[in-house]
Design a protein around this nucleic acid. Structure first.
Lengths: 126, 126
DNA sequence: CCTCATGGTTTACGTCTGTAAAACCCAAGA
DNA sequence: TCTTGGGTTTTACAGACGTAAACCATGAGG
């Protein structure tokens, strides 16, 4: 499979909607994005571009299209993370985690959850 | 102080050079970015834009300028992380960490280091 | 003092993005 | 069958970005 298409900020919103539930019609997507206060036309543009980029596909259903993701959520996220890591830390993971723990205010619960996750991971690897 | 300027991908390369060492002349920056194979003109454009955005400033030194960062590395990184988190996880930190632990292959050492960091943090918070 | 190189400033240009309206097409109701 | 409303496709347009050449001003060397 070729390289993933680059998905812009606004386009991500559309992808998120379809990762949540798919397939959906353009109208449903517009609906789901009501919070953004975008003109329906705008949302349609985003959808079209995503189709062109190959991030979405669609199936005809009567007179309207139902759109569905081609790029999976995991792929999308991975790509974003990679791009972030490359840009900021030249790809290194650990300093990123360090900086994050240091800078973001994590609640005790989050720290706990993370601790468990980490233990899990360490156990698995050993 | 107002909001940080949005620094583009290519511009980040320039910032990194100056975070490493500052102030530096345009030529030195071009030099430092030799690996990118950019035309000197291109680098100058990036510098100019960064100055316009307020991410860099400069001091005159004879006929040339010495550029230096206004935005600190920490600010820059934080902004990137925030933008990444918002885009992908709607701002939630923990799922990001989870996904990261899951997807990226961390070495035993990295996991250890992370564990220590986390303990530190948990202690501090309690 | 004058010329020229060198560094800064302006201009260029195609693509991508955010934002949206205009045009078009066709199925369903009159 | 004709009209029309609702979708889809096209067109628009300003600003950011990557990439870079053209132009201009001035300090340094002759």
């Amino acid at each position: 499979m070729g390289k993933l298409p680059k998905i812009s900020d606004a386009e991500w919103e559309v992808m998120k909607v379809l990762w949540e539930r798919a397939p959906q019609s353009a109208n449903e997507i517009v609906e789901a994005l009501a919070a953004r206060q975008w003109s329906p036309a705008t949302v349609r543009t985003l959808i079209t571009r995503l189709v062109q980029k190959g991030a979405l596909s669609f199936e005809k259903a009567g007179r309207e299209y139902l759109y569905l993701p081609v790029v999976t959520r995991e792929e999308g996220i991975r790509q974003e993370r990679r791009s972030f890591l490359r840009r900021v830390y030249d790809g290194a993971v650990e300093p990123m985690l360090a900086g994050l723990l240091d800078e973001e205010d994590l609640s005790a619960e989050e720290l706990e959850a993370l601790h468990r996750l980490l233990d899990e991971k360490r156990k698995g690897q050993r």
